Amino acid sequence: MKYKKHVFICTNQKEGGKRCCGEEKGMVLVNAFKEAIKTRGLQMEMRAQKTGCLDACNFGPALVVYPEGTYYGHVQPEDVQEIVEQHLLQNQPVTRLVLPY
């Protein structure tokens, strides 16, 4: 595996006003995770990127961290630093945001 941690952030867009992560800060979160990883010099070990629907629309904005497969919901830009520090660096999921999948 190339990366120790891989963060996929939903940026899906739905038609007709349906709730979706892309409308709820998807790309803001992608950029925040990328910046947090880059600032710490971790871009060779960790990656954040946009993805399509994670089928967690009711919990959006949503993301998943691999290799664990930990799903997060209701993630806001102010949660990014906590997820990076606690989960990506210390392998401790941020339990208040973890989805029960």
Rank of each mutant, 00 (worst) to 15 (best):
V94N: 07
I83Q: 02
Q92E: 15
G52I: 05
K2S: 09
N12I: 08
G73W: 08
L54E: 05
V7N: 00
D79L: 12
P61D: 06
Y71G: 01
V64E: 00
V64D: 00
E85D: 15
E15A: 08
L99H: 11
K50L: 05
K38Y: 15
V75A: 03
K18S: 09
A32E: 13
G69V: 02
E23H: 14
R96I: 02
K25P: 04
V94W: 03
V30F: 07
G26T: 01
I83Y: 07
A56T: 14
P100T: 15
G52A: 06
T70R: 04
I37H: 07
N12F: 13
H87D: 04
P61R: 04
Y66L: 05
P93Q: 06
F8L: 13
G41S: 01
C21I: 00
K50Y: 11
L54G: 03
G22N: 14
I37P: 04
Q90P: 01
I83N: 01
V75W: 01
G22V: 15
P67L: 00
K25C: 09
T95E: 08
Q92N: 15
L99T: 02
L42H: 13
V75F: 04
L99F: 10
E24W: 14
F8C: 07
T95M: 12
N12E: 11
E24C: 09
E85C: 10
Q81I: 11
K18V: 15
M27E: 07
Y66A: 00
M44I: 12
A48G: 14
T39K: 15
E35A: 15
V75P: 01
V30S: 03
L88M: 10
F8I: 08
Y3R: 02
V75N: 00
C20E: 01
E78R: 10
K5D: 00
G60P: 08
E78W: 10
T51S: 14
M1Y: 01
H74L: 07
K5G: 00
G41P: 03
A48H: 00
L99Y: 13
G17Q: 08
Q76D: 12
V64T: 10
G26R: 00
L88C: 07
T39Q: 12
F59L: 07
P100C: 14
E35T: 14
M44H: 13
M44L: 12
Y72T: 01
V64P: 01
D79Y: 14
H74V: 03
R96T: 09
K34V: 13
C10M: 09
T70I: 11
D79W: 10
A32V: 05
L99R: 08
P100F: 15
C57V: 08
G69F: 04
K38T: 14
T70V: 12
E82S: 07
N31L: 09
N58S: 11
A32T: 02
G52H: 14
H87A: 02
G52K: 05
G17M: 05
Y66P: 00
K4Q: 08
Q13G: 09
R96L: 01
F33M: 03
H87R: 04
N91P: 01
V64A: 04
L63R: 10
H87L: 02
D55K: 12
T70Y: 02
T70C: 04
Q49H: 11
